[in-house]
Amino acid sequence: MGGAERNARKRKQQQTAARSVAQARGVAGGDKKKVVAITVAVVVLAALVIGGVLWTTSSKDTTEGKVIQAQTTTSAPGVVEKRDGAVVIVGKPEAKKTIDIYADFLCPVCKQFEESFKGQIQEQVNNGVLQVRYHMLPMLNQRSDPPGYSLDSANASLAAADAGKFLAFHDALFKDQPQEGARGFDKAQLIKLGADVGITDPAFAIAVNTGAYEQQVKDAYAKISKDPSLQQDFGNGPGFGTPTVTANGQVVKLEDGWVQKVVA
């Protein structure tokens, strides 16, 4: 092999080696970019997870330390609030029409029901036409965190009825309703609300703290939830749900004008 050929071959080998090095650097550079990209993605994901946990925790505990706002509930002279076991009867004794309302203080649809029809119902109660039987149930008792708010609030509302303050207590709990799946109001907050709506009898706080009516509420719910006359089809077969309203033993369809139809 001549000198010229040897030089040409040497140059070719050098060029090949240079290309290999460049390719290797490119691969290494690409790998580094991938590593950086993956690292950034992991960091971002971790930040989102941590932020989500913090937001969820913060959102869950929005009721902690909160003062439930007392509501102004105006009842006409002669309107009586009376507890009968686990039921609270509100109205004038001479009222000719009666409805039963089955609800849960944690039920979002029950809150919507109150917002839509509370004024119409109260008008007929104040007029002496309608008497209402309230059944406050612990249907969503496991849906608060920690569980138990539905039962605590139902029990407290019965104690408020003993003091003649059921409607004011009831309206405040729906107005300031906790989020389903989050923290409810604790017993101290329920007792504070009682004081704010005008309950002065120490028996109220005792009844709340001891769960005086909890067994009555649970027994009533067990019976109501299995009552065939209260079953409705909510899209997945017959069952009981809140809110449910009955008049003359029949479930009322909650559409516009139903209050007027009931009292007509």
Rank of each mutant, 00 (worst) to 15 (best):
F169P: 06
G194D: 04
Q122F: 02
K175Q: 11
Q131G: 07
Q15R: 15
A24H: 08
G257Y: 04
G241E: 01
G2T: 15
A205S: 15
K10D: 09
K175H: 13
G194Q: 06
A247H: 15
P93V: 08
V53F: 11
V40P: 01
V49R: 02
A163D: 07
R25W: 09
F240G: 03
L130C: 03
D145S: 15
H135Q: 03
R183Q: 14
F166L: 08
I99T: 09
Q231A: 13
V53E: 04
T57C: 00
E114G: 12
G257A: 07
P138S: 09
A24Y: 09
G237A: 06
G237Y: 04
V42S: 05
K223G: 00
I224H: 03
E180W: 02
K33S: 09
R19P: 00
G164V: 10
A86K: 02
V208W: 03
Q189H: 13
L140S: 06
P146W: 05
R143L: 13
C110R: 07
V259I: 15
Q177H: 08
V262E: 03
K34A: 12
V79E: 12
P146A: 09
A203K: 15
C110A: 13
V208E: 03
M139K: 08
L151G: 04
A22C: 02
A163V: 12
K92T: 11
K253D: 14
A188W: 01
